[in-house]
Every structure is written in C-alpha cells, then in structure tokens.
Write a protein that binds this DNA or RNA. Structure first.
Lengths: 144, 144
DNA sequence: CAGGATCCCATGAGATACTG
DNA sequence: CAGTATCTCATGGGATCCTG
C-alpha cells in the first residue's frame, strides 16, 4: 500500500452504526482492539513474544519497569483473548512459558503498520504539541 | 501488503532499546500513539472527522454517549497533537468547525489496517474469551 | 520461579450546572 | 452554540507482602 493514496480504508469509510451505542462496553470491535492494545504494556509484551517464547521472569526483566502484578494481568488478558498461550512445565521449581498463538501472530503486521506511522510522525506530533503548549501554557506556577 | 506474509515488520523486529525505560511516560513513540488512540472516543472522532469537517454539536450528536466534557477533551488532545484543526467562525451564535489536518489524515490508513484486523478476528477473540471465562469463572454469585 | 492478595494513588470518564 | 467548572465513580497501574 506504500504510495497508494487512493486507497479507501474499508472500515473507516463504511457507515458507522451511527448513533454509536455505549450499552455496556464498546460494541465496536475496532475500538475494542485499540483499547486492549492501547495500555501501557500490552504492545511491548506482544512484540517480545512475537520474537520468541518467553518465561515469566524473562519478560519481567526485559520490560523492566513493569510490576509482577501488571505483567500477570497483561499476560492473563492476552491469554483470555486467545492472543497468547501459557504453557506450564510441571518441573520444580515451576517454569511457565508464554508464546503468541497463531491469532496473536496475525496481529503483528497491522500493529507494525501503525508502529511505522508512529515512528515516521512521532516528531511532528511532538512539535505540534510543543507549539500548542507554548501558546496555551498550563496553569502552573509562574516564574516571575 | 495484502497477501505478503513474508513481510517482516520493521519496528516489531527491530531491536528494542531493551531494558525499556519508563522515565516519565513511554519513550516509545509506538506505545505513545497506541495510548493516544486507544481511549474510548478518539478513534470514533478521527473516523468521523476523516469523512468531513464537523461542528461541535454535530459530533456530540453523532457519537451519542459522549459527554461534552469528553468531547472537548478529546478534540483538544487531537488539536494539541496536530491531528485535528479547530476553526472558529466569529458569528453569533459562535460556530466552530473541526477537521483533520494532513497529519491526521495520514493516520487513517494505518488505523484502517488495524481496523480490518479487528473486524476479521473480533469473533475469534470473543470465542476465546468465552471459552476462557467458562473454564475459569469469575467469582460472582453462583446460581445454585 | 511464578503469581495471588491487598493497599493506595493517578487518570479516565460520566453527570450536572453554568456562561460568553 | 460551544464550551468551562465541579463532583463523583470506575479503572489503570505501582508497591509490598505472601505462597505453592
């Protein structure tokens, strides 16, 4: 799709179920996915698992900054959604291995498309943000 | 990129700045973008603005379920990041029009790639989730 | 080693009321 | 019309302690 600017995004131009329902959660699978991947750790875990299986503490060390709690929760969520698989080897001490499922692997490419965008345009966003903040400074302490 | 399965995702396979820093926020532009788009309303607003400019109350009606507060905040955030533009027509009563910036438009295609994935695999996720929940039921009331 | 339990804070997000 | 201000609740996320 590199240079194709005439490409009309399927979902984005399709008619929305317009008065967007907010029954219980999203009802929109796209927003649903975005929210699932849009937290602080999921993306990183997906990337790491996309390269090779990892054990719990291996992930814990690789990510560094994540708490066991959040690592566990993130992995459980991925497992629940069928994106990652958890394999327990009944050794002693126990060893658990996490890996992406085939479904999880199919997520990598779409994610990478967005990732490329982020890398390409991250600077523009930062610039825009700085300019905006310069014009409407946040109500903090004034120096003078 | 449609059928190309041999495509190696650039960012996803590139070496991570491994012990992932968590200095203040993300430091990872990809996670940053995911988090920005991964809230409850941003994606919907982006999609609507991607079709044509909208006025404030027009968006308010189209999304339905969003509060003025969140609509304002979402629009301000998009504006701050240079993804949307706010044009005030000094009429009375005032009229304000929101539109995507060129930068904002470039986001639509990557987003659409993910959106397609979500539509294609949403059911699989739901199935996996149901199965998972059936095996490890949440500690709610039991019927019997 | 892998993870559960608990406590606590920061942010997301809805409701309502008010205004230039 | 297009917001701002305030209040309140739900969730995300970190720290710490405990266990099979």
């Amino acid at each position: 799709m590199s240079g194709t600017n005439t490409h009309v995004p399927s979902v984005l131009s399709a008619p929305l179920p317009s008065p967007v329902p907010s029954e219980e959660y999203d009802a929109c699978p796209v927003t649903d996915v975005l929210r699932r991947v849009g937290d602080r750790w999921t993306l990183l875990i997906l990337i790491l698992l996309g390269r090779r299986p990892h054990r719990f503490n291996e992930l814990h060390r690789s990510v560094e900054g994540i708490s066991q709690r959040m690592l566990t929760r993130t992995l459980r969520a991925l497992e629940r959604d069928g994106l990652a698989a958890r394999t327990v080897y009944p050794t002693v001490p126990p060893s658990v291995e996490y890996d992406l499922t085939p479904l999880g692997r199919t997520l990598l490419n779409p994610l990478s498309t967005l990732a490329d965008w982020a890398v390409d345009h991250g600077a523009e966003i930062a610039t825009a943000r700085d300019r905006h903040d310069a014009h409407s400074p946040p109500p903090s302490e004034q120096s003078a």
